[in-house]
Design a protein around this nucleic acid. Structure first.
Length: 231
DNA sequence: GCGACAG
DNA sequence: ATCTTGTCGC
């Protein structure tokens, strides 16, 4: 359990309300296809109280893996809608810290600005690290959107009432869109461009696919010696 | 008051 | 997130 980590939901919401002021929204961020892009994801074993985070660094031009790292820890916050960051951030920080090179733009599995208090996981991670971050989620959470046109690349506003908090972006022809929002130091247009650059083949970005596979594998391995294989 | 609700 | 086999389709 990290120093000063909130113990209650009310404390956690107060932390969000305070850190939100530090989000930078007026920087365009690195152009897609250049430098590096890093995916982060987390897997859990609630019964054993184990959490594993993975960070996978890709060359943005080729999408080849150039580095990866994992971190194992204890679960330090329950899943509460709107407070996901408090469950995921400590392990993700550890995984990012274990990388041998700078991560470039960090792609999170979840939301940034598209959040009840406009401070989702990607915003939180961005503020704590200073890195440019974006959020790419698989579900619209509580937000609304008009279905984008069928071709890949089409998009529609992701709305909280009349406020655009992100974009529903079609990454594959005729397939359910992903939900992109800004984290820190990246523009929404640029975040969508990055997302398209990371989806040459599948609905989800290569970064999150790679990070997801790695943290699941690391969780299996971290968990393997504690309970013998049943048969 | 009740249900919904990123991962 | 996680529990879980096969199956339909490109």
């Amino acid at each position: 359990m990290p120093e000063g980590w909130p113990a209650t939901e009310a404390e956690a919401r107060a932390v969000q309300d305070e850190l939100r002021a530090r989000v930078i929204l007026d920087e365009p961020g690195p152009p897609p296809g250049t430098g590096r892009v890093t995916g982060v994801d987390v897997a859990y074993d609630d019964d054993r109280d184990v959490v594993v985070a993975a960070a996978v660094v890709l060359d943005a031009a080729t999408l080849e893996v150039v580095a990866e790292a994992t971190a194992v820890g204890r679960i330090c916050f329950p899943y509460v809608p709107g407070l996901l960051a408090f469950r995921e951030v400590p392990a993700v920080l550890a995984a990012l810290g274990a990388l041998p090179c700078p991560p470039g733009v960090v792609v999170c599995d979840g939301y940034g600005l598209a959040h009840p208090r406009r401070f989702g996981l990607a915003s939180h991670l961005g503020v704590l690290t200073g890195l440019p971050t974006i959020g790419v989620a698989k579900n619209p959470f509580t937000f609304t959107y008009a279905d984008p046109a069928a071709p890949r690349g089409s998009s529609a506003a992701l709305l909280a009432g009349s406020e655009e908090v992100g974009r529903a972006l079609r990454t594959r022809d005729g397939v359910k869109p992903v939900f992109v929002s800004v984290g820190h130091r990246v523009t929404l247009d640029n975040a969508c461009a990055h997302t398209l650059a990371l989806t040459p083949r599948y609905r989800l970005p290569e970064t999150t696919r790679r990070a997801d596979a790695l943290c699941r594998r690391a969780l299996r391995e971290a968990t393997a010696r504690q309970e013998p294989t049943s048969r």
